[in-house]
Design a protein around this nucleic acid. Structure first.
Lengths: 191, 191
DNA sequence: GCCAAGTTAGGACAATCGTCCAAGTCACAA
DNA sequence: TTGTGACTTGGACGATTGTCCTAACTTGGC
């Protein structure tokens, strides 16, 4: 807990703030205030704001990888694993209602800013995409697993966007149920 | 064409720029540069930046209403009308690939800024939502039309988000095809 | 106890932000 | 012809932005 370096604290605070208020709208002063350090202290750890963004994307990538491999261990069948993915919408529904999906909203913002970190941010999506794709492949080797992965990914994104726009948690549960049914129907048709 | 007032030009330019680079990232200087007027001239037409945003949302609402009633006239069956909605993804695929959905990305940004115009922006979604809901009601009076409308809306949003994140137009066509099939299956089951 | 390296604080910096204002231009009514 | 009101200009304003710098502090090896 307390063996975290200042750098870690900065990245952690930036991670939260970028999610809750967006990258551009989060200023150095705001991060400094949260971490309770001087504004000038930043430039000993990071040269630019973009460098902080890269660090944030880095830890998000690592956390995502860890989460996916944990799901891989805890859920024994590919169908259960995909279901586990679908249900993060439920798990994170409170935050999603307020701030949307951390991955989707970041990619959307960086696209508008035409920011050089776009490819790095996209890797967060790619992580889920390839992981889901591998699960679908295990279900049916002849299926176009990547298309199915993108399909699930897109539906999750849409749910997060609308749940946030309408501040509606019930809608999340509604759509998760539909996605579960879709997955069951798919499995029944293929196995 | 040339009978547009300066105010109209400002709103028009702001509309495009808010879509392409986001609301916060678009500055007065940038709009002024585009319209080719002095920066100071703004405050004869608008008191604050938020007022411009409200005007932009206003014209978007009006344009959307006009578009929906046009679809209502051109397409004679509710199914054709819903299909028409689905296919704006194809029509606007080039811009969606770059900037995502104009409605979804605006609502997402305003949510992060905790901006007072959030309810106004949400009305853009509501317009589509109630229109789609009415179409579904015409297909089947016993259906939960609103759930179906939200479902289609969410899937469109997801497609736009991922198409932008991956700069992938082909994915749009792929998913539109799936949505068409979903609609056909639904109609076949209910009629 | 001392020095070097790593870390921090606080403020200076140029640029840009949204906002506002005084002066000027223009068209048209009296 | 003159006066009036709508419109436009260019710049000033205070605040805030990301960036950078210097001086002070802390720490560990000698």
């Amino acid at each position: 807990m307390s063996d975290k370096t200042t750098r870690d604290h900065i990245v952690e605070a930036a991670d939260q703030l970028f999610y809750q208020q967006g990258y551009e709208h989060t200023s150095f002063s705001h991060i400094a205030e949260t971490v309770k350090i001087s504004r000038g202290n930043f430039y000993h750890h990071f040269k630019t704001k973009d460098e902080i963004l890269n660090a944030v994307i880095g830890v998000r990538l690592e956390n995502t990888r860890r989460m996916l491999s944990q799901w891989e261990n805890e859920e024994k069948t590919p169908v259960d694993r995909i279901r586990r993915f679908i249900h993060i919408l439920i798990t994170n529904r409170a935050k999603i209602k307020h701030y949307g999906c951390p991955v989707g909203t970041l990619c959307t913002e960086l696209a508008k800013l035409n920011h050089p970190a776009q490819p790095e941010a996209r890797r967060l999506f790619t992580l889920f995409r390839t992981w889901l794709s591998r699960q679908f492949e295990k279900i049916d080797h002849n299926a176009d697993a990547d298309e199915l992965a993108m399909h699930i990914l897109a539906r999750s994104q849409g749910v997060a966007t609308l749940a946030s726009a309408f501040s509606d948690q019930k809608f999340i549960k509604q759509e998760v149920k539909l996605m579960d049914e879709w997955l069951n129907a798919y499995v029944k048709g293929k196995i």
